[in-house]
């Protein structure tokens, strides 16, 4: 097991390196520069702009820039943002709590919907409940989040005036009031993301459970007179969870990565909105930092999923 983990981690190194090379080249080849706004300002002489570019090393060839980035990264220095001149690591850490809170809550909500609804629908296929759940799930994952987000804003903020649509990180209140305000402003982004994710997962859970429920060992368990709930939980769900775990584990990086569109709509200051503003401003160090964190998380959670398989199905062994 340990040997397997070590081998997997070693294999991960070249793939991370490859990812970083591709990311860096794509960013370097992309047109535009971080001082676009200075270019149209007559009060700033062009050589001031040229100085700025030179001071940030933007005029060096790509491979030189990549190597200096990589060496700094190996030393644990993530570089600093061209735009805010503050360290990339600080920027990411500042936004992590909000992202984890909002997106994490959305994922929990999605799981809380998908698991019971999916399992219940699969145990009674083509019943009324199953039909309704299916229809809603289709509607849910057919509507993109930017659209449901706008619909929610129109309904709950504009017409009903119940919820605020600008997310604020610092609320002037303490105790219960703080929690209340926090809840009010989080409801819409969490619902938008959670319902979308939940709808997709419901479909997935249902089909995974349906696959298992027809197998012979389930019939055997039933014929032994085990209660229906015990059959479902012990013999069906545990086996059906293997593909679901993969899906959920691969979704975990998104919890840290934030939801770019939703964060932008509700002005949630998470990592997704950091990434999008960095891309718009051509702020290479920040884009590299955030995307590299994503890449690491994807690799890591792939590993977690593989390890979880063994726990769910002892027949799987690691060599």
């Amino acid at each position: 097991m340990t040997q397997y983990l070590v081998r997997r981690l070693i294999i991960a190194i070249p793939s991370l390196l490859g990812i970083s090379v591709i990311l860096f080249t794509v960013l370097a080849l992309a047109p535009g520069d971080p001082f676009e706004e200075l270019a149209t300002n007559p009060a700033i002489p062009p050589d001031v702009r040229a100085n700025l570019r030179a001071s940030l090393g933007l005029d060096d060839p790509i491979h030189v820039r990549y190597l200096s980035w990589l060496l700094a990264m190996l030393r644990g220095e993530w570089g600093f943002s061209f735009v805010s001149r503050s360290p990339v690591a600080d920027l990411i850490l500042q936004r992590l709590p909000t992202t984890i809170a909002v997106i994490g809550a959305a994922q929990l909500l999605a799981l809380a919907i998908a698991l019971p609804v999916g399992i219940y629908a699969a145990t009674r296929p083509y019943s009324i409940f199953d039909q309704i759940a299916n229809t809603l799930a289709f509607v849910g994952f057919s509507l993109p989040t930017f659209f449901t987000g706008l619909l929610f804003i129109l309904l709950f903020s504009i017409y009903l005036d119940w919820l605020p649509f600008v997310f604020r990180t610092q609320i002037d209140a303490t105790g219960w009031r703080w929690w209340w305000e926090q809840l009010r402003q989080s409801i819409m982004p969490v619902l938008v993301l959670g319902l979308f994710q939940g709808a997709a997962w419901t479909r997935f859970v249902r089909s995974a459970v349906l696959d298992v429920i027809r197998l012979d060992h389930v019939t055997t368990a039933r014929s032994k007179g085990i209660s229906e709930s015990a059959v479902t939980m012990r013999h069906v769900v545990r086996n059906a969870m293997i593909p679901v775990v993969t899906l959920v584990a691969l979704q975990m990086p998104a919890v840290f990565g934030g939801a770019i569109v939703t964060e932008q709509i509700f002005r949630v200051p998470g990592i997704g909105s950091l990434l999008i503003s960095a891309i718009l401003a051509n702020d290479t160090p920040v884009i590299m930092g955030v995307t590299f964190v994503f890449a690491c998380l994807v690799v890591f959670f792939n590993l977690v999923a593989d390890v979880l398989y063994g726990w769910l199905d002892p027949r799987i062994s690691y060599r």
Binding site: P31, G32, D33, E36, A39, A50, N282
Partner: peptide, 10 residues
């Protein structure tokens, strides 16, 4: 042309 290209000093 996309603004970030059009207004760049690239």
């Amino acid at each position: 042309v996309v603004a970030s290209v059009f207004f760049s000093s690239d």
